[in-house]
């Protein structure tokens, strides 16, 4: 998505009718609920992922992702098309999640999604595992646990920026639009969050 950083700037030149999401939104407004299923299908993975990475809790992520899509469906009449549809949807997801985290501040129960190990192809992983790769699941599992623990030690606002930038691949500008803050604030939060993570994970990262 960050490759689309230039595309964000060019979004102004893009007309509403050119954007497939806007066309789907128009169809939903006209009463075609199947068009909403297309939007859900397109974004459910990313919305679930961002919520899950903020909560580190599968059940919460499921409930909050459902809530996000229901809220978006009910608010679709208020979507004016001033931003991209996914930015608007991310904003609902992030706000719903942050509100949930504020209400459940003392919750310390986390559960993690299974790693789809076959999708992890990285040179560093090859270097860390033995030739026969039998230790690969153990290495990955430990890294996953340590990373999630470290992320949960960040404040929600710092965690949000790190997740949106490093995991979701969003640009500073897109994150600023989702969070309704300046790009300077995004950069500063990201810098601080990464410093914190580097320190928390110093035994695991170079």
């Amino acid at each position: 998505m960050r490759d689309a950083e230039a595309a964000v700037g060019a979004a102004g030149a893009q007309t509403v009718s050119d954007d497939p999401d806007f066309r789907l939104v128009a169809r939903v407004r006209a009463g075609d609920q199947a068009a909403y299923s297309s939007l859900v299908h397109k974004y459910k993975g990313r919305i679930f992922s961002v919520i899950y990475n903020l909560t580190s809790n599968r059940e919460d992520a499921n409930d909050l992702a459902q809530e996000t899509f229901i809220k978006a469906f009910r608010s679709l009449d208020r979507f004016r098309g001033r931003s991209q549809f996914f930015t608007w949807l991310y904003r609902i997801a992030v706000n719903t999640t942050l509100s949930h985290l504020r209400k459940n501040r003392l919750r310390h129960f986390f559960n993690y999604e299974d790693l789809q190990e076959e999708t992890v192809n990285a040179e560093w992983l090859e270097a860390m595992t033995s030739a026969n790769r039998s230790d690969r699941p153990v290495v990955l599992r430990e890294l996953q646990e340590k990373l999630n623990e470290a992320l949960q030690q960040l404040s929600p606002k710092h965690r949000t920026v790190v997740v949106l930038f490093e995991v979701e691949g969003m640009s500073h500008e897109e994150i600023a639009e989702v969070l309704k803050v300046s790009t300077g604030t995004v950069r500063s939060r990201l810098h601080y969050a990464k410093q914190q993570l580097q320190s928390l994970l110093q035994s695991y990262v170079r």
Binding site: S49, N53, E117, W124, L143, Q144, E166, V167, K194, Y204
Partner: peptide
């Protein structure tokens, strides 16, 4: 060891 950014990208592999 991986860099912090590489480690964070590991989270993309966490999928239901």
């Amino acid at each position: 060891r991986p860099s912090l950014e590489e480690l964070l990208r590991l989270k993309r592999a966490e999928q239901p």
